[in-house]
Amino acid sequence: MGKIGAVVLAAVVLIVALAAAGTGAMLSAFGDADTQPSRAALNDIPSEYLGLYMHAATTCPGLEWPVLAAVGKTESNHGRSALPGVRSGVNHAGARGPMQFLLPTFQNVIARHRLPKGGATPPSPYSAHDAVFAAAAYLCDSGARDGRDLTGALYSYNHADWYVSQILAQAQAYSGSAAFGADAAPASAALQAINYAQGQLGLPYEWGGDGPGASDAGFDCSGLTKAAYSAAGIPLPRTAQEQFDAGPSVPPEQPLKSGDLVFYGDPSSGIHHVGLYIGGGMMIDAPRPGKAIRVEPYRYQGDDYAGATRPASS
């Protein structure tokens, strides 16, 4: 083994040892005052993944580990998602693994970047080690190096404005200090609600549904928003009309924030639909019978948008 290989192997052994020793050891090895995890990060990120994010970020000057962690959270809840394509197979778009790589993209990355030892042989997008290091390399090549164009790098990872907004907000919540991008992160309750709703993507619309349980397989629109905010410790009424009435309302002249509830219908005669705004003009909602919970624009041609409320501020 050459000198470089020995150094890489030693670093991998260190990560494994630190993960076994606990989060505090990882912080002293890889974190500084500006990038130590927030309490939300420590509570949410498995130690194995936290070590990988911290180590992989050091391979790209200017890339902060909370950004990698935010990608991992959004793509697969740090490998914990049971959706197709995370542990085996592919999702509807052909992506696979905890960082949700398309196979040609992953193969292109590992052809240009030799991944550190410690993953699969040959490297696999299903390996947390390989996927996280490949994601760091991909973001670095796409603009994250030296902080040149982080938003552009994230947009390259997933071509959606809402995705960039979500990653930057999650990264700020994980860092506990540094701001990533121009937009302020949503309140912690709003972020928890968004994270919950993201975990329900792909479930079926079910009239009166309150989520997977003894009798319900999915949600209706207000069942989803109620469950999302319940996960954040904020109780909401059950129906879209009741949630609209509960407020507090967002004045029409104010911009929406991630976590706002957006409503459709006529305030005077009845509200019939609600979604959870996630930034970038997008929302998560349970649209209607026959459709799965999905991300879609909160304004669309012919809509009857009625306004928004901000439960996290109540």
Rank of each mutant, 00 (worst) to 15 (best):
G270C: 06
A95D: 10
E242M: 10
Y264W: 04
S28W: 11
Y205G: 07
P123R: 15
P311D: 06
A312Y: 11
G72M: 08
L63G: 06
V16M: 07
K117W: 08
A29N: 03
Y49W: 14
D303V: 13
S313F: 13
P267I: 03
E206Y: 04
S215D: 09
K226F: 01
K3H: 10
A312K: 07
A246S: 09
A197T: 13
G247F: 11
A197Q: 11
S88E: 12
I284V: 11
G218L: 09
S215Q: 09
A197C: 08
D34N: 14
M54F: 02
D183W: 05
V164K: 13
L150D: 03
D149R: 12
L18A: 02
N43T: 09
A240G: 02
R112A: 12
D260L: 12
G223A: 02
I167E: 00
G208V: 05
S47V: 15
L191M: 15
Y155A: 13
S230T: 04
A21M: 01
V262R: 08
G181L: 02
Y163N: 00
R310A: 14
F244N: 06
A21C: 00
L150I: 10
D210L: 08
M54R: 15
I284E: 00
V274I: 09
G51H: 02
G97F: 10
Q243K: 09
A178L: 14
Y174S: 07
A187C: 06
A144C: 08
L27H: 05
N158C: 05
G51F: 02
Q198Y: 09
G79T: 08
A6Q: 14
L115K: 05
G223N: 09
L27E: 11
V67C: 06
G211S: 11
V12D: 11
S313M: 05
V132H: 00
D220V: 07
L168K: 02
Y305F: 15
D34F: 05
V295L: 03
T121K: 13
G51S: 01
P125M: 14
G211E: 04
D304H: 04
D303W: 15
Y264C: 08
L191S: 06
P46L: 12
G202Q: 10
A25R: 15
A11T: 10
G89F: 10
S313T: 15
S215E: 12
A17F: 12
G89R: 13
E296C: 01
P212V: 04
G275L: 07
P104G: 08
H55M: 07
R148Q: 13
Q36S: 14
A25W: 15
H92N: 12
P287L: 10
A182I: 06
H273Y: 00
D285L: 01
A82Y: 02
V295Q: 06
G279A: 01
G31W: 06
S47C: 04
D216N: 14
T225E: 02
T309D: 05
Q172T: 12
A227N: 00
G5M: 01
G143Y: 05
S76K: 11
F30Q: 11
S76M: 13
S175I: 06
C140W: 04
S156P: 03
Y138L: 11
F219M: 09
Y196I: 04
L191C: 00
H113C: 07
N195Q: 08
I194L: 08
K226V: 00
A93K: 14
D32R: 08
A160H: 12
H92S: 12
D34I: 03
Y49I: 09
V295I: 14
A41C: 12
